[in-house]
Amino acid sequence: MNEDKVLGFQPGTGFIYELNATTKLIFLLLVSVACMVTYDTRFLAAICLLSVFCLKLSGIKWRQVSFVVKLILVFALLNLITVYLFQPSYGQNLYGSKNVIVNAGYFTLTQEELFYLFNLVLKYICSIPLLLLFLLTTNPSQFASSLNKIGVSYKIAYAVALALRYIPTIQNDYWSISVAQQARGNELSKKASLSKRIKGTLNIVKPLIFSSLTRIDTISTAMQLRRFGSKKKRTWYVYQPFKLPDYLVSLLALLLVAAVVWLWQINQGRFFNPFK
């Protein structure tokens, strides 16, 4: 199986890889929340540029993330459509004006609605590259130690890290079970009908679940035998101390949050209104 297709941490070099996991987590959380809160298009556009730039900087390849990105696109599109169908007049209520593009009764499309939906798209573009960046450039163990550092119980932090670490292993297991099933005659390619493919996938999932359960059992035994959970706290071999770039990046995250607060005041609310 090709390593590049695996969605998980892979060691690399560069500015983003060298940042402390805690820094990256703080940045991800603060900036995502900021982007969720504000509907200031200028701010969102700026963050979009920033996060796409960071993704470019990290050197992550398209084929590593293509599957997830496509999946997210489908859901994002579904989300946009339902938002529109649910209340096509939401935009005009929000911005207090009505510039009709297409007149169609309930489904009347206005510039305001379109602008509102555009803001939603920007929000996706802000946070998804950041999230991918975090997952692909952060060593799960360092992630656990940083979660623990910001106050999450180390058992939960470790469970999250292990889950992240096992994504590639389980993908690999899935792959080997799947080819063995295909050899039996289980057609999973596009040649087969959807119902056959679903049924075929179930034949893979069953052995996969059982082998994963065995795996979990073994690893938890191994962890207990080495006293995981015996004390209230633990130390971390991989813990990295904060360095200057970490302080600067954290500061940037705080400044961005401050910017959102400031924009709130200027816009007198969460929304930037170009229709005034």
Binding site: S230, K233, R234, T235
Partner: peptide, 20 residues
């Protein structure tokens, strides 16, 4: 299946980590 750490060093250190 018993490796816990991401790297060799981390795995060797696992019980030491738990002993604080």
């Amino acid at each position: 299946s018993q490796f816990i750490g991401m790297t060799v060093g981390e795995d060797i250190a696992f019980s030491l980590e738990n002993d604080q």
